[in-house]
């Protein structure tokens, strides 16, 4: 049976992870490669590396990092942050990334998703959407939540699917950072609205939130950052718990 996926997200700046990391036996907590390797060993199903500097001058550092992660890590990983051209994607994939995620640039340039999908296939295109609920509607925001678009979340998700996106990574800005749980109703509606997998993001705080996002939210995957990095939830414990709740997960190899 297809497993629900658990995806830690690493925020990267200048080739280093930015959020605090609380692990035992870690050699260099800021080293993204070391952290990626440990998450893979712990049973993470995929990884997301989000480059939050994303300036043009820093791209070379990112490509080198991607190459080092690809050499060390034996699970799929996605790279996002500042991708605005098909050429950017080519550089990331040729350095060993499995997928890329696009966000603001895909809204501004409707040809971007189709361009990437045509050249490299839909399987490598993750569309990231940040949205917030306003007067009952979910509205898409750009530039890390700073730019309001007026675009409806569900309309944009469906359009992106038609353009060739292979997955939707939906972050609820209303839930992100609250640790009160994921945006379950919106996720369920989104998952029923598109025919491609949906990755839930924003709001993870306790293990029960992951159960709920897979049952009520019917998400295909759940992404979180700080609950993993700060050690509040360990991936092996989370997977044992989800198994006990009859959710299909890939057990860690003992």
């Amino acid at each position: 049976m297809l497993a629900k996926r658990i995806i830690p997200c690493l925020d990267i700046r200048d080739g280093r992870t930015v959020k605090g990391i609380n692990f035992e036996n870690i050699r260099d907590a800021g080293d993204a490669v070391e952290l990626a390797r440990i998450y893979a060993l712990q049973g993470a199903d995929e990884l997301v590396l989000l480059d939050i500097t994303a300036t043009h001058e820093k791209r070379k550092t990112l490509y080198e990092l991607v190459g080092r992660v690809a050499a060390e890590v034996n699970i799929p990983f996605t790279v996002g942050g500042g991708i605005s051209t098909v050429e950017d994607v080519g550089m990331l994939l040729s350095n060993g990334a499995d997928k890329i995620s696009v966000n603001s640039a895909a809204v501004r340039n409707k040809k971007l998703i189709a361009g990437i999908a045509d050249k490299y296939g839909s399987q490598c295109v993750v569309l990231a959407i940040d949205a917030r609920q306003e007067e009952g509607r979910w509205i898409v925001y750009l530039n890390g939540g700073r730019v309001h678009t007026g675009i409806d979340l569900y309309d944009w998700a469906r359009e992106a699917e038609q353009l060739g996106a292979g997955e939707i990574l939906f972050t609820s800005m209303d839930h992100d950072g609250t640790r009160d749980g994921f945006a379950l109703d919106a996720l369920r509606h989104l998952s029923e609205h598109v025919r491609i997998p949906v990755i839930a993001s924003g709001g993870a705080g306790r293990m029960v939130h992951f159960r709920d996002v897979f049952t009520h939210g019917i998400a295909d995957a759940a992404l979180a950052a700080s609950v993993f990095h700060f050690g509040q939830i360990s991936i092996p414990n989370l997977k044992d718990y989800l198994s006990s709740q009859n959710i299909s997960i890939r057990p860690q190899l003992k």
Binding site: L2, A3, R5, D45, Q123, G166, R195, I196, R250
Partner: peptide, 26 residues
């Protein structure tokens, strides 16, 4: 949902050749 994307279990009819277990599909 198509594509079939993620980890799924493969079961062996000839286990000596390739191990049964969880593999990543897309």
């Amino acid at each position: 949902k198509v594509p079939h994307m993620g980890w799924n279990t493969a079961t062996a009819s000839d286990a000596a050749l390739f191990p049964a277990g969880w593999y990543y599909f897309v």
